[in-house]
């Protein structure tokens, strides 16, 4: 991890040094640790962060529930609160009390994994939101995509599932148009927006932090005396945006889980 941090600091210094300020670009998010810079299969920094988060979540969940008691310890209480949020206010409220239970493990995994990975975006030694590389939200979305379609096909059958996409009570003339629209919604818009929302929020937020911090760094070290004063404002904005990022990170983990539950619920719904 330490060499990782050193390269990060090196890159920050590099982008802030020289005669002119270079604004951060999407290329700053490419961090191969092993396998070479041009290798698309390189083991990258977000891969390491993801592995770390999986280990951390597994350790935390086992440690906080191994000695589960009726009167919970602090750790068990936190785990129970998070589990309760996912189970009751996401899964049960959205999917319905009849068959929400078998989706709780999926939703809980999604929520904890995304939450921890998002929070890693601002936790100092790591400071890389995994989901700002589009491959990671894509993989998560692929799981959700397969799950809600399989659930729908199993429940309604092939023709029944396609039919269940159309809301009832429509005049016959508009049915084909509505079917095309709903088909696009189910197969294109939903996975695309689910994936891009998580990616876009994490990417944009991190890019903004990068901009304020590297700009403050540049103005402080290379600017005139007036610029040095302005850099205080830049750092203050970086601080404010970091606080805002915490909110966004929680919200995105919640939203991803909520939408997963919503999509599963709409595949399971009997009639529109």
């Amino acid at each position: 991890m330490s060499s990782d941090v050193l390269t990060a600091l090196g890159a920050l210094a590099a982008s802030g040094s020289g005669d002119s300020y270079e604004t951060p670009t999407p290329a700053e998010f490419w961090w191969p640790l092993w396998g070479g810079y041009d290798n698309p299969w390189a083991f990258t920094r977000p891969s390491l962060v993801l592995l770390l988060s999986v280990g951390l979540i597994a350790w935390w969940l086992v440690a906080s529930t191994r000695k589960a008691a009726v009167v919970p310890s602090k750790g068990q209480w936190i785990t129970e609160q998070v589990y309760g949020l996912v189970r009751n206010s996401i899964a049960k409220d959205v999917i319905g009390s009849h068959d929400f239970l078998k989706f709780v493990p999926l939703l809980f995994t999604m929520f904890t994994l995304i939450l921890v990975n998002n929070l890693f975006g601002i936790i100092p030694p790591i400071q890389y939101p995994t989901m700002s590389r589009i491959g990671f939200p894509m993989a998560l979305t692929l799981i959700v995509y397969v799950v809600y379609h399989v659930v729908g096909f199993r429940k309604h059958g092939f023709a029944g599932y396609l039919k269940s996409m159309i809301p009832g009570g429509l005049p016959k003339a508009v049915l084909p148009f509505i079917f095309v629209l709903e088909f696009i919604t189910y197969y294109v818009t939903r996975p695309l927006s689910l994936c891009l929302r998580l990616f876009g929020n994490m990417f944009a937020g991190h890019l903004l932090l990068l901009l304020f911090i590297t700009a403050g760094d540049y103005m402080l070290l290379h600017g005139s005396i007036g610029m040095k004063l302005v850099s205080v404002g830049s750092y203050a904005m970086a601080f404010v945006m970091t606080a805002f990022e915490i909110l966004v990170e929680f919200l995105q983990a919640y939203i991803f889980t909520l939408l997963t539950a919503t999509y599963i619920a709409s595949s399971l719904a009997d009639e529109h």
């Binding site: 206010s89 927006s193 876009g200 939203i255 909520l258």
Partner: peptide, 27 residues
């Protein structure tokens, strides 16, 4: 409030999707 909150957030994310598309396509 509790019930409205989840509905409001759901509406918010659906509206937000367009802005996110714009952001991604800008890059």
């Amino acid at each position: 409030r509790g019930m409205l909150q989840s509905i409001a957030i759901l509406g918010f994310v659906l509206a937000e999707a367009l802005a996110i598309f714009g952001l991604v396509l800008a890059f």
